[in-house]
């Protein structure tokens, strides 16, 4: 093991560059998949005809496929039908598709967990369906959704490492590049990578706990 060689300034910078890519891809995917997941989840909860069915088919299909398959599909299969994306956007698209299906289910079940009497109370006071959803159902559902949503975000951040298979220059990819140089780097580099993932994800879960307490 060569800790000193492995942790040279160049290597650290190289790994952190990879980590920036991880954060960038994860950040954009979190934003997009949250938006898409919220729409899919709410549409399915409200049972809007046609849209609810489309949402259900999408969610059930995607949830039952491995993320790796979706990454391969976006990067290798889409160009066959004329959709060619960069490595970064391929990773973002694949993650967004996969995670939005997961988030849609979290959001739908969070809304479903609000007692149906709440909807009846709102509607019987003259509020419209949308008003009742907005003022009564959503605020109660969101409280219950926060912990599972944050753990899904943490999963997403970790799942960006799967994009190593399409050579996205994220942290795991860069770690592998370094490891290939010298077999004595493997253990030190993996330890460092593990520490970075842990710190960021653990911080996220602490933030989630704070949010929960404040609600």
């Amino acid at each position: 093991m060569d800790f000193i060689g492995a942790y040279s300034p160049d290597h650290i910078v190289f790994l952190l560059k990879g980590f920036l890519v991880t954060l960038e891809v994860a950040g954009i995917s979190i934003l997009l998949s949250f938006l898409l997941g919220a729409i899919l989840g709410i549409v399915r909860y409200t049972k809007v005809p046609v849209f609810a069915q489309i949402s259900a088919i999408f969610v059930e299909t995607i949830r039952n496929l491995p993320l790796l398959l979706i990454i391969f599909f976006v990067y290798f299969a889409l160009p066959e039908v004329g959709i060619k994306l960069s490595i970064t956007w391929s990773a973002i698209l694949a993650l967004t598709i996969f995670e939005s299906a997961m988030l849609a289910e979290i959001i739908r079940s969070g809304l479903n967990s609000v007692h149906k009497g709440q909807m009846e109370a709102g509607r019987s006071s003259g509020l419209s369906y949308i008003q009742t959803l907005w003022y009564i159902i959503l605020p109660q559902g969101v409280r219950r959704m926060v912990p599972p949503i944050v753990s899904q975000f943490i999963s997403l951040l970790k799942d960006t490492s799967l994009a190593v298979v399409i050579a996205l220059p994220e942290m795991m990819h860069n770690a592998q590049v370094l490891n290939a140089q010298n077999i004595n780097y493997i253990i030190p580099i993996f330890i460092l990578v593990a520490v970075i993932y842990f710190i960021v994800n653990f911080a996220l879960s602490l933030v989630a706990r704070r949010l929960e307490l404040n609600m």
Partner: peptide, 26 residues
Amino acid sequence: GMVFQHFYLYPHKTVLQNIMLAPMKV
């Protein structure tokens, strides 16, 4: 007006907010 067996007050709102919601929004 409707009163339910299990009240169905909005648990995330204060008593005052519970009563004010519909008069304001409706």
